[in-house]
Design a protein around this nucleic acid. Structure first.
Lengths: 217, 217
DNA sequence: TAGATTGTTAATCGATTAACAATC
DNA sequence: TAGATTGTTAATCGATTAACAATC
């Protein structure tokens, strides 16, 4: 990783959303053989204030930075991994094995964070019984029993927007407590169920808006 | 859309990130034939404070809410569309036509927000000359000339993490000012270039963390 | 030693919420 | 009219930054 340039990142608030970024960066540095890193260096990469980095890290880890040398990368990484829960195994399932469903089932990045997408559900007879990214594709009408039996708490919705609410209701009735929603539908759920909308086009639109307000100045 | 339940959404800060959600919701309501909506109803769907909704809306639109009746959906939608820039056409391009690249090129959701991904670039000879989601796939070595000629400012990185920085450097040298990065590499860019990291596994991990802290209480 | 870098306390800043008068 | 709902001003809250003493 070259050191000359600065990274401009889209704004983010609260340590909760920054800690995963520290983790990413530290893992990258670790792989490059970097042993210690200062808060200023981390801050530079992420385009934030070094004091904020130190505060975030001291709140989440037991690693103390050393004056003159900064933080040791590998213990920091280990602590952060524990704090973020990446060392614990979590199981999720996905409904809607279309384009995006395939992509997520094949994504190897979940493993590293302790997340296992155990199965995909779909109604397409051509898919049922197949495997995508080593994960079995099961028929929709098996979902209820499967999810209850395995006690799954995390559901991923990658169906077309029109049937997202129905799938969501099903998930909720099976005891799902967190839904990662890729459809464009705003879902209705009971208060104890968490929904995270991952509207990709909107996410890019947000970036464009920031870019425009940047160049206007 | 049923009205009985509340939606729990992952926290978000500043009107910038909430306005697109209002837009989504209002469009949905509009399609259902809803004519007026109160700030309390919007707030309920999004699990936020109604005062915040009114403040956000009054800052972004010229539509005044009517006491007793709330806001008219369709003028609000129109104003919001303008404010968010969804009525202006923007052009982006994508590098790395793998699984995720295919998914994004085929996604119809960008159009509605005024975003057109004009082409995908890849080195795979089997893909070059093909079309994905109606978008042409071109060889990597054509990127430079193509991007400069069209004056493209927005690049999407969907290549493996190992070559992400190289692709990024290329983009920057072609004048790209905003990068939507799906690789797991923290990119180095000059200060005037905006990077938005879309690390999908990490995004789910963040949701899990919140779910766990919810159930702990 | 001098300088780089840390961790912490206090000050600042911005965003959210509470309170309330105005209005249909 | 009474009640629902608005928009705005002031108060609160939390997050970020500034200042600075401690230390290798």
């Amino acid at each position: 990783m070259a050191k000359k340039q600065k990274t401009s990142l889209v704004v983010m608030t609260s340590s909760r959303s920054r800690l995963p970024l520290y983790y990413s960066l530290l893992r990258q540095l670790d792989q490059e053989g970097v042993k210690t890193v200062s808060s200023a260096t981390i801050a530079d990469y992420l385009n934030i204030n070094p004091v904020l980095v130190r505060k975030d890290l001291s709140g989440a880890t037991h690693v103390c930075g050393m004056p003159k040398r900064g933080f040791e990368v590998s213990p920091l990484l280990a602590d952060l991994k524990g704090y973020l829960g990446y060392d614990k195994q979590d199981e999720a399932f996905l409904v809607g094995v279309g384009n995006l469903g395939h992509t997520l089932l094949s994504n190897r990045g979940f493993e590293d964070l302790g997340i296992n997408i155990v199965a995909g559900f779909d109604n397409n007879p051509a898919l049922i019984g197949e495997k995508v990214g080593d994960k079995p594709i099961l028929p929709m009408d098996k979902m209820d029993e499967f999810v209850r039996r395995m006690g799954l708490r995390i559901g991923i919705i990658t169906v077309p927007s029109a049937c997202a609410q129905e799938v969501c209701d099903n998930m909720v009735s099976c005891g799902v407590k967190a839904i990662w929603n890729f459809s464009f539908t705003m879902l209705n759920v009971p208060e104890d169920v968490l929904v995270k909308n991952e509207n990709l086009p909107m996410s890019l639109a947000l970036l464009l808006q920031q870019m425009k307000s940047n160049t206007e100045q």
